[in-house]
Nucleic acid binder design. Structure first.
Length: 213
DNA sequence: CAGCGGATATTCT
DNA sequence: GAATATCCGCTGA
């Protein structure tokens, strides 16, 4: 018999915990993006933890700036940043206000609204690639910086919400170094994914790119 | 499949 | 001015 997916929203105190506890606990949860055309829902399969000012890989490592201000705010809000001149990536803020830690949502399986996601991800060769990678995930869900600072735990209307879904047991969770993170930040094994899931993105080590002439 | 380089703009130095 | 929590398309095996 098939278990009914749990559509209960995760409360703020789910996110108001140490980021290394929250990150693996997000795997298997359902992220729902409400759009004018309808909802797009995604089962989270891969995340990375960024541990505030203590973490050389974190945007918050050098303190608060205009870009990362949302990280310093309350848990359960969405931090969206723009990178490589083209892409958006989304995080969920964790821990008490001022902690400035967050979980980067790296990959997932589209479980509802795949037609809408395909329209946003025309280069995807199959549905497993729709959200395989953080910028692909944000693109598939239509997330851009307009959603930076959005509260995913409000009782009112919100364009993004995280539902209980079907959490995976810890023996199904693998972890390893974070993808593309430079320098000392690369040592932490703070990338978490569902073992053998086909929507998880491939690992890439950090490679400094020389500027073109 | 692996390896490469280009695209592109915001951010921090 | 230089780096970047990336992706895509092309090349060659």
């Amino acid at each position: 018999m098939i278990a009914t997916p749990d559509r209960t929203p995760l409360p703020r105190n789910f996110f108001d915990r140490p980021v290394l506890d929250v990150a693996p606990d997000l795997l298997g949860r359902t992220l729902v993006r409400s759009t004018p055309d309808g909802p797009i829902a995604l089962r989270l399969t891969e995340v990375e933890a960024y541990d505030g000012p203590n973490d050389p890989g974190s945007h918050a490592y050098r303190g608060r700036t205009a870009r990362n201000a949302v990280m310093f705010g309350p848990a359960g809000h969405v931090y969206v940043y723009f990178t490589y001149g083209m892409w958006f990536c989304m995080n969920l803020v964790c821990g008490p206000e001022g902690t400035a830690s967050a979980v980067l949502l790296r990959a997932g399986e589209i479980v509802e609204g795949a037609e809408l996601a395909r329209k946003r991800r025309l280069s995807a060769r199959n549905d497993k690639e729709l959200a395989k990678g953080p910028a692909r995930l944000a693109t598939a869900l239509g997330v851009d910086r307009a959603l930076d600072g959005t509260d995913a735990c409000t009782s009112g209307e919100t364009p993004l919400r995280v539902l209980t879904g079907t959490p995976v047991s810890s023996d199904q969770v693998d972890n390893g170094p974070r993808t593309g993170v430079a320098g000392d930040g690369g040592v932490h094994p703070w990338r978490f994914w569902i073992a053998n899931d086909p929507t998880v993105s491939p690992y890439r080590a950090h490679v400094p790119r020389r500027r073109r002439s």
